[in-house]
Computed example of a mutant assay.
Amino acid sequence: MIFKTRLKTFSAQAVELLLTALDEDDRIGDASGLPATLAAPCTQATIEDNYALCLQLWEQGFTRRELRALVRKVLRGATLTEAEGMRYKSIRARFKHLRFAQRLYRRQHDSTRLFKLITVFLGHFQDGFRYGNDQTLRLYGTLLTVLLSRPLWALMRCTLRHTRLDNLPGFMRHCQQQMHELRTLSMKPQLTGSEFHDVRKIISQQVSYYDTLRSLYPADRQAYQTSRFLANINGLMGQRHDGMVADKLAGRRHYDTPDALDAAISQQLRLLTEHASQGLVPV
């Protein structure tokens, strides 16, 4: 399927529910377990509706000019206010969620190139001002001011609205491949930084699927419970990743140095892959 200009539009309530889910998608503490029954079966309509809601969330609520102004303020050496910092984080969350949607639902299972670059650079730029690394700030801030220009923004928005989505068998095959990769990596005694990042990408994509699903179908308690379970893993891995990035920028430890997964993360990953192999979660 190729989306045309007119996309399905969802209610403000669905968008607000998705924003709430994004606020919780790395919250630690809700490890009550996975549901004993499946969430609503995924259909072709689920794929199309999920992508449309993710795109609607990205398109609404901020402007290119606003984001570019935040980047330029930091580049000038000013410090973002607390409200501006939260705003930047919220905008970046919308980028990340749509990038996960592209990886999940597009036929290529990857982001469009320009959108991918901006999303990655937003993360590096945030690391720069979070950890006080001026070299990182200057590099990625300069790149972002170019990529956030009006012509490139229009081109990017066009590609987002006209993209080929995968069919249901292809989507399910992609998710099964992810679970196989997750199972293989989680069984290794140590992971490099790149392998750890690969595990986190899979978890982030899966939590994004259930975040969107629970927003479209608020009565689906299985989707909500799976979303919260995955968010706990995502939060634990996020804490670990923050430490890895801080060590890298401070020159204390190379990012790709092999290390064992924390016991809490390993336990939750094993539970997830066991449920997936038994067909208790639809991924």
Results as ranks from 00 to 15, higher is better:
Met1Cys: 13
Lys4Pro: 15
Thr9Asp: 11
Phe10Ile: 04
Ser11Glu: 08
Gln13Trp: 06
Val15Trp: 02
Leu17Asn: 13
Leu17Ile: 11
Ala21Gln: 10
Asp23Cys: 14
Glu24Arg: 14
Asp25Arg: 09
Ile28Cys: 10
Ile28Asp: 10
Gly29Met: 11
Ala31Pro: 08
Ser32Leu: 09
Ala36His: 09
Thr37Ile: 08
Thr37Glu: 10
Thr37Val: 05
Ala39Asp: 07
Ala40Cys: 10
Ala40Lys: 09
Pro41Cys: 07
Pro41Gly: 06
Cys42Ala: 15
Ile47Ser: 01
Glu48Thr: 06
Glu48Asp: 06
Tyr51Cys: 08
Ala52Glu: 04
Leu53Asn: 02
Cys54Pro: 03
Cys54Val: 05
Leu55Met: 07
Gln60Pro: 01
Gly61Lys: 00
Ala69Trp: 04
Leu70Glu: 00
Leu70Ala: 00
Arg72Thr: 04
Arg72Glu: 08
Val74Lys: 04
Val74Gly: 01
Leu75His: 05
Ala78Val: 03
Thr81Tyr: 00
Met86Val: 10
Arg94Trp: 00
Arg99Phe: 08
Ala101Leu: 07
Tyr105Asp: 03
Arg107Met: 15
Arg107Tyr: 14
Ser111Met: 11
Arg113Trp: 14
Leu114Thr: 12
Thr119His: 04
Gln126Cys: 03
Asp127Glu: 09
Gly128Glu: 03
Phe129Leu: 02
Thr136Ile: 06
Leu137Met: 12
Arg138His: 13
Arg138Cys: 10
Leu139Asn: 10
Leu139Arg: 12
Tyr140Val: 04
Tyr140Cys: 01
Thr142Pro: 12
Thr145Gln: 04
Leu147Gly: 03
Ser149Gly: 09
Ser149Leu: 06
Pro151Asp: 04
Met156His: 03
Arg164His: 15
Arg164Ser: 13
Arg164Met: 15
Asn167Arg: 15
Leu168Thr: 02
Arg173Leu: 15
Cys175Pro: 07
Cys175Asn: 13
Glu181Leu: 15
Arg183Lys: 12
Leu185Ala: 06
Leu185Cys: 06
Met187Leu: 15
Pro189Cys: 05
Asp198Cys: 11
Val199Met: 07
Arg200Ala: 08
Gln205His: 11
Gln206Trp: 05
Tyr209Thr: 06
Asp211Trp: 07
Asp211Glu: 13
Leu216Lys: 04
Ala219Asp: 10
Asp220Gln: 04
Arg221Gln: 10
Gln222Asn: 11
Tyr224Val: 14
Gln225Pro: 08
Arg228Asp: 04
Ala231Tyr: 01
Met237Ala: 09
Met237Leu: 11
Gly238Ala: 08
Gln239Leu: 14
Arg240Glu: 12
Arg240Val: 10
Met244Ile: 07
Ala246Val: 10
Ala246Leu: 11
Ala250Val: 08
Arg253Trp: 01
His254Leu: 10
Asp256Tyr: 02
Thr257Cys: 01
Asp259Ser: 12
Ala260Gln: 09
Ile265Asn: 03
Leu271Lys: 12
Leu272Arg: 05
Leu272Trp: 02
Glu274Ala: 13
Glu274Asn: 13
Ala276Thr: 11
Gln278Gly: 08
Gln278Thr: 09
Val281His: 00
